[in-house]
Amino acid sequence: MSQGNTQSQGAQTTGHVWDDDLQEYNNPLPSWWLWAFYLTIIFSITYWVLYPAWPMGKGFTTGISTITYKNDKGVEKTTHWSTRALLMKDLQDAREMQKPYFDKVAATPFDQIAKSPDLSNFVASAGKVLFSDNCAACHQSGGQGKMAFAPNLTDDDWIYGGTYDKIQATVANGRHGIMPPKGGADLSDVDMDNLANYVLSLSGEPSDSAKAAVGNELFHGKATCFSCHGADGKGNQDIGSANLTDKIWLWADVPGAGSADKKVAAVKAVIASGLNKGVMPAWGGRLSADQIKLLTVYVHDVLGGGSKK
């Protein structure tokens, strides 16, 4: 065990001695390591000179590196390097790359966009991204909607209108359909039963014709349903009152109800409780006008079902 001592003869030690003869070798670091270390020091000094680094009282050393960018008002500014200025520059570069497309989308009338393959490709891909990030949570990823929650955007049935202008208004300002409980009238359970049968008969669903006849009276009389849904039951797109004559349902799950009784119950439940939960948020504050126009064209052309009038 004590042979180890002999090796220390002549080798460089740190000079510390413990317990009479215990010493420590001084092995110099490999030179590549040392140089790498010096390089990191040179790097950090260069960094201090170029970029914001040292706090100085109420401010800091800004460094000599600068960034020049244009803000959204088109004002050009030059400032010291910072991640926020760098983002401005990145956004500006991206804007300039997409600008020809956005400019064209903005300048092209809605119905001409589909005719340009270049533009409609752009709308399809950029629109899909916007739709997934913002709309899919409610309207689902393919725009097929969700029963009792958000309407199908792929069919040609429109609560608020399917023209470009109407869709654009819907997206920018949001929508909120309201129907008071029992349509705001004083209705008994029997009244609602009759009304439900009448409503079902409008779209050719199975219904009790005697009850539907009484419901017809109520719909156009005491229950005042006609004032919102129209005398023909086709609804009014200005207030988003549903078209009751088609087979498309959003709130009363008629297609999902297994039996005629359950269909009546589904419609009755909607009449009894009224509707206040159809909230389409407004996107005007969150998305730019360009993005909303793009989404409008995406909903109308790509998801399909948009109408001319």
Binding site: A137, C138, F149, M280, G285, R286
Partner: peptide, 20 residues
């Protein structure tokens, strides 16, 4: 905030997979 409706937030918290 304000991205979705209150109705969506409630439904999504009760059962996220029913919405997504």
């Amino acid at each position: 905030g304000k991205k979705y409706s209150n109705e969506w937030q409630v439904q999504h918290l009760i059962a996220p997979r029913s919405m997504v």
